[in-house]
Amino acid sequence: MDLQLEGKVVFVTGGSKGIGKAIAKAFKEEGAKVAIAARTKQDLEKASIELDLDAHYEGDLSVSEDRENIFRQLINDFGTVDIVINNVGGSNGSTTVETDLSLFESAMNLNYFSAVHFSKLAVPIMKNQGQGVIINISSIFGRESGGKPTYNSAKAAMISFTKSLADEVIKEGIRVNGVAPGSILHSTGNWQKRLEANPTQINDFVEKEIPSGRFGTVEEVANVVLFLASEKASWVVGATLNVDGGQSKSNF
């Protein structure tokens, strides 16, 4: 199926590993021009070479100045941006009572404010060209308790932001949607570490909590992102789609 993504300029945050790397790979295979941003130089360079990407940018995406510098470089290099994938994220802390407030603030800066900021930077350019796509990678735990409270809160905010921004900019030809993965297994992720540390416990978790009976893959998330970025999803606006093998307990 031709998704008509060839030549599109795609920017993926947190694109050096895991879900972000799979998304970058999928777009590149569709003939898009792909740039990624992340914090670790070594991982960026490795992913860029492996996937034959068009650009990569190093910076702390939880810091507004770094985000502005990276986006400025992106526009200098490509002249525009057609698709922004706000994927960067992370988890910290423990229970709400035992987690310092500063960790909640850090989680919001990385998971939520990075998405808001990059979206605000991209929207004027997309408005000027009369089209664009923004996709926010959240989590099923943005709709229900399951992850750490810092992470849940930030991803819940992202889901709400996705809908509000989508309604605001669709008349300008800009579609905003989201993807909410469930438990995804990949070599650099927390689930892989947990599986190696206690395979019995994690296999029991999969059996009890994931109706499909297995972890999801990064490619399965990337495939949904490709669909949402394409004109095949032209009537999907403000949605955040679960990609979770039935894991979520919510019915919306």
Rank of each mutant, 00 (worst) to 15 (best):
A107T: 11
G245K: 01
A32H: 01
R67F: 05
R194W: 11
V176T: 09
R194Y: 10
I125Q: 10
F104M: 06
I36C: 09
N87F: 01
I125W: 13
A47W: 05
E168I: 02
L226R: 00
F161L: 09
I159F: 06
Q192F: 06
K46C: 05
Y151A: 03
T95D: 10
N203A: 01
M158L: 15
A222Q: 01
G213P: 10
G79W: 11
N111E: 12
K193V: 15
A22M: 06
F78V: 06
G147D: 04
A157D: 08
Q192N: 13
T150C: 14
W191A: 11
G132P: 07
G142Y: 05
E168Q: 15
I23S: 03
F227G: 00
N109S: 15
K155I: 06
K171Q: 14
D77V: 07
N76H: 11
A32Q: 02
M1W: 07
A107Y: 12
L228T: 00
V237C: 05
L3Y: 09
S114H: 10
A233D: 00
S187V: 11
S138N: 07
N128V: 08
W235C: 00
P149T: 12
P124Y: 13
K21W: 07
A180D: 08
A37W: 09
I23Q: 01
D54M: 02
V237S: 02
G173S: 13
F161C: 01
F252M: 10
G146T: 04
T13E: 00
P181V: 11
T162W: 02
I125E: 08
H56L: 11
A47L: 10
A156H: 08
V10T: 09
Q73A: 15
R194I: 04
S187N: 12
V84C: 08
Y57A: 04
T188G: 08
S230F: 00
T99Q: 05
P149G: 13
D66L: 10
I75G: 12
I75Q: 10
E220M: 11
W235I: 02
F252G: 04
R39Q: 12
I70V: 15
V10K: 06
T96N: 07
